[in-house]
């Protein structure tokens, strides 16, 4: 075999390996998609069949009807958008402070913020935070779903990291031209940081969309609940589990974030990788 032939064989082996691995890794999603199109008799056939005979949409209709999934999706969307706006705006402001200003206590405040970076408040603080919601009379409201999570160390960190890469000369020049600090931020820094802001937005959107324990405990009316909890509702609906309906519901809940991920994958990757960078 010539060197070129050997290289071709190598590439083919690698391609085949990757195709097999990718299919295996994505089987949980692929098999759920095919299951979601099976008719009720097909769903309960044993042995289970992989491909449905028809393109049956009834499971999707049933998923929407049995648990008001439409409403739950709207709730998830409202919750996610508010959290994203909060974390992004506050992240930009605080990131700007840490990256572009020298001020008393800056190192201390930075450390104070960063001790929270591995502490998911929606989980670890569940007991006292729940008590706080009771005291605020926020149970069963969008307030409870959103306000506590409108700021986070991660978003501040991402913005700060990015602002630090923008040359200081730009700020000096803007100041000589008489631009105020806020003008520099809104007219120069933010337009230059569009991709990182995009990353912060999409990462926080996935984070908020995937919230679970928090809505489970602070919401107890079905019409205020979020889509993720809808999955648990589907799992416990009915005497026997109808996997046709459950997988249809799961695909609906998964689709928005999966499509977002495929659409702007580089934004995700950039943001995720930056969280691991140190100062």
């Amino acid at each position: 075999m010539t060197k070129k032939q050997r290289r071709t064989v190598q590439v083919v082996v690698k391609e085949v390996t990757l195709i097999i691995i990718t299919i295996v890794m994505l089987l949980p999603i692929l098999l759920s998609i095919t299951m979601s199109f099976e008719t009720p008799p097909e769903v309960f056939t044993y042995p289970p069949r992989i491909f449905p005979n028809t393109f049956y949409l009834g499971n999707y209709v049933n998923a929407f009807n049995s648990i008001k999934l439409g409403r739950l999706l709207i709730n998830s969307l409202i919750m996610s958008v508010i959290i994203v706006v909060g974390k992004t705006v506050f992240g930009i402001l605080a990131g700007y402070a840490f990256a572009n200003f020298k001020f008393k206590g800056s190192a201390f405040l930075f450390a104070l913020l960063f001790v929270t970076i591995f502490m998911p408040a929606d989980m670890i603080m569940i007991v006292p935070l729940y008590k706080l919601m009771v005291n605020f009379h926020w149970l069963n409201t969008y307030w409870a779903l959103t306000v506590p999570f409108t700021a986070s160390a991660t978003s501040v960190f991402l913005m700060r990291q990015y602002f630090l890469t923008i040359p200081k000369e730009l700020e000096d020049a803007a100041r000589i031209d008489g631009a105020s600090s806020m003008r520099y931020l809104t007219r120069i820094l933010i337009p230059l940081s569009k991709t990182m802001i995009g990353s912060v937005i999409v990462i926080n959107f996935v984070y908020a969309w995937n919230f679970y324990l928090w809505p489970l405990v602070v919401i107890n009316s079905n019409s205020m609940q979020t889509a993720q909890i809808g999955l648990q509702m589907l799992m416990i609906t009915g005497a026997t589990r109808n996997w046709g309906i459950i997988t249809a519901g799961t695909i609906i809940v998964l689709a928005p974030v999966l499509i977002l991920f495929f659409a702007v994958q580089n934004l995700f990757v950039q943001g995720i990788v930056t969280t691991g960078l140190k100062e």
């Binding site: 691995i21 990718t22 890794m25 994505l26 089987l27 949980p28 999603i29 098999l31 759920s32 299951m35 769903v43 309960f44 044993y46 289970p48 996935v206 969309w209 995937n210 679970y212 993720q228 909890i229 999955l231 648990q232 589907l234 799992m235 589990r241 996997w243 459950i246 997988t247 799961t250 809940v253 998964l254 974030v257 999966l258 977002l260 991920f261 495929f262 994958q265 995700f268 990757v269 995720i272």
Partner: peptide, 25 residues
């Protein structure tokens, strides 16, 4: 494609695997 499980929530992952591991389907 191999990055994409990142978008899958723990709840969705739980349901998907509960489905694959369920006795009948």
């Amino acid at each position: 494609l191999l990055f994409s499980p990142y978008a899958v929530s723990p709840a969705v992952a739980g349901v998907l695997w509960a489905f694959l591991l369920s006795p009948v389907s």
